[in-house]
């Protein structure tokens, strides 16, 4: 459904599909979510010959914060980047399974990938403002999606910066280079930039890992407010952070989804041994 290389995999997946999968009924990964915005359906992904995701099925609840946790290299980023098809940009990727966004397969030939990425925004681990002014950074998305008028842009920029809790700090220097901001401010600018195109979902890949505790706290606080309007998916290494900010948590291990459920339940009463080991820190 996505890459040409993937066609060669289809025979394999047919075999898999033929087998009824009791995992789908595993309560450890099937929390009662009624209103989901993204449905991942037995997704597997290979980087060349190397399998990075194995049969992952997960439902992302609307206007909630979902956290992906797990040890390094378990496939959190890979899963996240599947959701807005950023993995298209990587060579030799093949994908099996499906991801549905609002009921529509994102791999469908009719899906406009640029529209998809507009609706599912992304914030990266390392803040990546463009080497342009603060204003231009936020206006970038709206501009490429066709907003022209200065008044409209001004309004979007202000609203986005306010939503990202950055407005008061930068309102007097919108024309300055974005690279002159502090690390935490840059990361919030990236969030504002993502907000500016009015997405429905924002994916955040370890957004605080390069920040000090105060900047981290600011962003965590911000995330709470953002759930008013957006669905958030956050990858984090920090268990406290996951438990603080998220409503649902998914634990991945070696490319597999081990456990998924309401955050409180998962941290207090993990159903799987691996999860318990990981959240209690007994994990290597």
């Amino acid at each position: 459904m996505i890459t040409s290389a993937e066609k060669t995999r289809s025979s394999k997946s047919d075999v898999v599909r033929a087998v009824p999968r009791e995992v789908l009924h595993d309560p450890a990964i099937l929390p009662p979510i009624t209103d989901s915005v993204i449905d991942v359906d037995s997704l597997s992904l290979w980087y060349g010959e190397k399998r990075a995701l194995e049969d992952v099925s997960i439902r992302i609840p609307r206007k909630k914060v979902t956290a992906f946790i797990g040890p390094s290299g378990c496939g959190k980023s890979t899963l996240l980047r599947c959701l807005n098809r950023m993995n298209d940009l990587v060579d030799h990727v093949s994908i099996d399974g499906d991801v549905r966004f609002d009921g529509m397969s994102i791999f469908d030939p009719d899906t406009d990938v640029y529209e998809l990425r507009k609706r599912i925004g992304m914030v990266f681990q390392k803040s990546n403002p463009f080497p342009k002014s603060i204003y231009e950074n936020v206006a970038y998305g709206p501009r490429i999606h066709g907003t022209k008028g200065k008044r409209d842009l001004d309004e979007i920029v202000e609203r986005s910066l306010r939503s990202a809790a950055l407005w008061d700090e930068v309102k007097d220097r919108l024309a300055d280079s974005a690279l002159g901001l502090s690390g935490g401010q840059q990361q919030r600018l990236c969030i504002a930039r993502a907000i500016a195109v009015q997405p429905e979902v924002i994916l955040l890949d370890e957004p605080c890992s390069a920040l000090d505790p105060i900047a981290t706290a600011k962003i965590e606080e911000l995330m709470d407010d953002l759930t008013q309007d957006f669905t958030l998916v956050i990858v984090t290494h920090n268990m406290q952070q996951a438990s603080r900010v998220s409503d649902y948590t998914a634990f991945l291990y070696l490319g597999k989804l081990i456990e998924y459920g309401e955050t409180e339940r998962l941290f207090v009463k993990p159903m799987k041994k691996e999860t318990e080991d990981y959240v209690t820190g007994r994990f290597g």
């Binding site: 640029y114 990425r117 990266f124 990546n128 463009f130 080497p131």
Partner: peptide, 26 residues
């Protein structure tokens, strides 16, 4: 940097727009 290109693409920019507005100025 790659992350700047990705930043642009993740906003829904096409490759051409990314090259024109981010890569070439950089």
């Amino acid at each position: 940097p790659r992350i700047q290109r990705e930043g642009s693409l993740a906003l829904g920019a096409t490759r051409f727009e990314t090259i024109r507005r981010v890569v070439l100025p950089g």
